[in-house]
Computed example of a mutant assay.
Amino acid sequence: MADTQDTLKHTPLFDLHVELGARMVPFAGYEMPVQYPMGVKKEHLHTREQAGLFDVSHMGQVKLSGPNAAAALEKLVPVDIIDLPVGKQRYALFTNDNGGIMDDLMVTNYGDWIYVVVNAACKEQDIAHLQAHLGDDVALEVMDDRALVAIQGPAAATAVSRLAPEVAEMVFMDSRAIVIDGVECLVSRSGYTGEDGFEISIPSAEADRLCRLFLEQPEIEAIGLGARDSLRLESGLCLYGHDIDNSTTPLEGSLIWAISKCRRADGERAGGFPGADLILSQIANKDWTRKRVGLLGEGRAPVREGTELFDADGNKIGEVTSGTFGPTVGKPVAMGYVATAFSALDTQVYADVRGKKLPMTVSRMPFIEQRYYRG
């Protein structure tokens, strides 16, 4: 059944978005801001040049506690959770028995509990998956009384540190509980734009007030989902359900870096996650047939998701999974899957856009320089 205006959920910042003149659209069961009066391109460029505030409260926030929480979660992901340092965050993947990716997620060790953030469209499935497999000695709490916002851009640290000076000491993937204007928040120095910045979990009752304080900072503007998508694409970051899904293995998705060394065939805690045999075999034998690649176009015509890709002889070799015109790059940028024979850098392929074969070049991702703050 299609979402209707009456069935869509609202985040704690809904009234603020409407007040700011956002154009609201259905997204993952929520009514979300796709853009504000500034427009997608200007919002994108403002984030690259200053700082933007994104409402990502539709994401799922989960608390896992109990002495075996890390070990239990590690059985569901090809990632080192047991040795994740306190106060650090890590990117992870839920895999299925066929080696496909059920979702990608962020995991943080807060010492006596683990904080997990999952994608909005997958959160019901992911929470059920956790409940079914974690075991009785792990307590799972869905943190549905919290908002989540991202403040991203080169001026993010300057702006946020006026309200929370401690954030200036953090580096990329650090996480801390920090009191901001009397409110205890969970803050990580991370994000989904390729820029420096923070993701901040705020009690729902205080979210509107705190976000108004953030927006009072001269560097920060409210930014919608449209610019969030073009920013993450320029940074070569996957969107679940588009660039990776249940049928994609981490190797096909160019995410071998997300499989911790200790979980690989020669590691001390090798395997033990769903689909491990297939995934570890792909690593050992380099036997996957398609690969996610970056694609740079010529001219200005964007090459959209679903566009078929061909070789010089007119044979279909793949498909675009995300594509737009990159405002920072100044060219059409895309990612998609091609047969591995065509996945080498600088290979020319052709995108079929309304019957025209537009040349694209297999290119390194990210398309822009990532500016995460590493100290």
Results as ranks from 00 to 15, higher is better:
residue 5 Q to A: 14
residue 5 Q to R: 14
residue 10 H to G: 05
residue 15 D to M: 01
residue 18 V to Q: 13
residue 21 G to T: 03
residue 21 G to D: 02
residue 23 R to G: 11
residue 27 F to Y: 15
residue 42 K to E: 15
residue 48 R to C: 13
residue 54 F to W: 13
residue 66 G to L: 07
residue 73 L to W: 02
residue 77 V to Q: 11
residue 78 P to G: 06
residue 83 D to F: 11
residue 86 V to F: 13
residue 87 G to K: 06
residue 92 A to N: 03
residue 92 A to L: 03
residue 98 N to Q: 15
residue 100 G to D: 09
residue 104 D to V: 00
residue 105 L to S: 02
residue 114 I to T: 08
residue 114 I to L: 14
residue 117 V to P: 00
residue 120 A to K: 05
residue 142 V to D: 09
residue 154 P to A: 11
residue 165 P to A: 11
residue 167 V to G: 06
residue 168 A to N: 07
residue 177 A to T: 14
residue 180 I to V: 15
residue 184 E to T: 15
residue 186 L to H: 09
residue 189 R to E: 07
residue 199 E to P: 08
residue 200 I to R: 04
residue 205 A to P: 00
residue 213 L to E: 14
residue 214 F to L: 12
residue 215 L to F: 09
residue 217 Q to N: 10
residue 217 Q to V: 07
residue 218 P to Y: 00
residue 223 I to L: 09
residue 224 G to T: 12
residue 234 E to Q: 08
residue 235 S to M: 05
residue 240 Y to P: 01
residue 246 N to Y: 04
residue 251 L to Q: 10
residue 257 W to K: 14
residue 258 A to C: 00
residue 261 K to G: 03
residue 267 G to D: 08
residue 269 R to V: 00
residue 270 A to I: 00
residue 271 G to W: 10
residue 275 G to Q: 12
residue 278 L to G: 13
residue 280 L to G: 11
residue 285 N to C: 08
residue 294 G to K: 07
residue 297 G to V: 03
residue 299 G to D: 05
residue 305 E to G: 06
residue 306 G to A: 06
residue 311 D to F: 13
residue 312 A to K: 14
residue 316 K to A: 08
residue 327 P to K: 02
residue 330 G to I: 01
residue 354 R to A: 15
residue 366 P to Y: 06
residue 374 R to K: 05
